[in-house]
Design a protein around this nucleic acid. Structure first.
Length: 414
RNA sequence: GCGAACGUAGCUCAACUGGUUAGAGCACCGGCUUGUGGUGCCGGGGGUUGGGGGUUCAAGUCCCCUCGUUCGCCCCA
């Protein structure tokens, strides 16, 4: 019996919910195209190395969250836990450095072996964008503004906040990291257990620890923004000014960080308070070191990814299916003619349903459940006169129409 | 991976301190209405109470294990 349940952290998405997912993904894609992005589709699994090398051997994603297996040929394979690594790999594999700058959009399932919660699944869907080959804040501004437009068009701007920070370039960042570790090492006795581990693995993360004792120590810690060098400082200022000119509101959260080594400069998150601990709905940052680290030529990059499930949870009004026209044969003799009429209308672009069985009453009920806009009744006596009865399902009004001119009466129902 | 709560029909929920055959609303199916849906009335199907074990004369109810969901932590979208 357990085998008839979906695997933990996976779910079936039925038609009503699928419409919500499609709305999110289609909106993202449509906005991305408007901003000049092209869609890229990479495999949902890669050689494990693609992720382990880019995400770092110590990151949680690599150490405990990847679905990794050996295939029948003995290769180590991993179901992708995120989208950027695969895009970077595809960029190198396909020699796309000659096409820079590149603006890419992707969508599809990701896999992480985690404890499921609301808005957190083991198989989940993301949409995301990447801009490769632009080292200036122009790309950062565009990346954030496409995100903003996307969320706005989903109708979500009211309960979502944009948090923004700069990690500085690698020189600034490394200098700060050393300074922070030096400071925190003096307070090891008061750090939480989690943060003690982070101290060696991922010290910047301690800045946004939720532990109260940690926060008390962090308050007096050296500040990230104070160690930004001039170049990093002006990069961030240019970004802020660009956002300001576009009317994009944000909060400068100086404790917002990214753990992985290749991140630099811009880090941002769009968050909501409506989803508990899974409040991050869209997040991204600049990753100038990534492509180089994978073995490609040094190529700056910036991008974001958004969780489709989380976004659908914020869209509580459902998406109605489009209203069909239903063709109803009355009596067995009419069935074959009904099929012909149905097929003719479908080929002309109408959304038409023809039930498989049942008397008139049942078929009318079914039409009502489908939220049909109109029904076309074809009875034997009508067919001898080559007409049908067109019924408006909202008003209940009916009229006989000639089958030859049927389409002339259907415009309101297309 | 750690901590906690919860699992009764397709859905939302009942069932007094353990006590006959586990109920209701919605949904579904049929009838009132053999060429007319959405409202109404009448009837019907549907449950190994997540699964397994234990205590008891008796378990949906108590205990253990397991699976799942939810909340928090870790981490992230």
């Amino acid at each position: 019996m357990t085998s008839l349940k979906p695997v933990r952290g996976t779910q079936d998405i039925l038609p009503a919910e699928s419409r919500l997912f499609r709305r999110v993904e289609e909106t993202a894609f449509e906005v991305a195209e408007r901003y000049g992005f092209g869609e890229i589709t990479t495999p949902i699994f890669e050689f494990t190395e693609v992720f382990s090398r880019t995400l770092g051997d110590t990151s949680d994603i690599v150490t405990k969250e990847m679905y990794t297996f050996e295939d029948k040929g003995g290769d180590q394979i991993t179901l992708r836990p995120e989208g950027t690594a695969g895009v970077a790999r595809a960029f190198i594999s396909n020699g796309l450095q000659q096409d820079l700058p590149l603006k890419l959009f992707y969508r599809g399932p990701m896999f992480r072996y985690e404890r499921p919660q609301k808005g957190r699944r083991r198989q989940f869907r993301q949409v995301g964008v990447e801009i490769l080959g632009v080292a200036t804040p122009q790309a950062d501004i565009e990346t954030i503004s496409i995100a903003q437009t996307f969320l706005e068009e989903l109708g979500l701007k009211n309960n979502i906040t944009l948090e923004l920070n700069s990690l500085g370039d690698s020189a600034s960042r490394n200098a700060y990291r050393d300074e922070l570790v030096k400071y925190l090492s003096g307070h090891q006795d008061k750090l939480s257990k989690d943060s003690l581990e982070r101290l060696t693995r991922n010290p910047l993360r301690i800045l946004d620890s939720k532990d109260e004792s940690d926060q008390a120590i962090v308050v007096n810690a050296p500040r990230l923004q104070d160690s930004l060098n001039d170049a990093s400082q002006s990069f961030f200022e240019d970004l802020c000014e660009g956002l300001y000119k576009l009317g994009i509101a944000f909060e400068h959260n100086t404790n917002l960080v990214r753990g992985l080594d290749y991140y630099c400069h811009t880090a941002f998150e769009f968050t909501t308070t409506d989803l508990g601990a899974q409040g991050t709905v869209l997040a991204g940052g600049r990753y100038d070191g990534l492509v180089g680290q994978m073995g490609g030529s040094e190529t700056p990059g910036i991008g974001w990814a958004a969780g489709v499930e989380r976004l659908t949870l914020l869209l509580d009004d459902g998406v109605e299916a489009k209203r069909p026209i239903v063709v109803i044969p009355v009596g067995g003799e009419a069935e074959s003619e009904a099929l012909v009429v149905t097929e003719m209308l479908r080929k002309k672009g109408y959304r038409v349903d023809l039930g498989y069985s049942g008397n008139l009453k049942k078929r009318m009920k079914r039409a009502n459940q489908l939220n049909a806009a109109a029904a076309i009744l074809l009875g034997e006596d009508e067919l001898t006169r080559n007409v049908g009865t067109l019924r408006d399902m909202d008003s209940g009004e009916q009229k006989e129409v000639s089958l030859e001119t049927l389409e002339d009466h259907l415009a309101p129902y297309k």
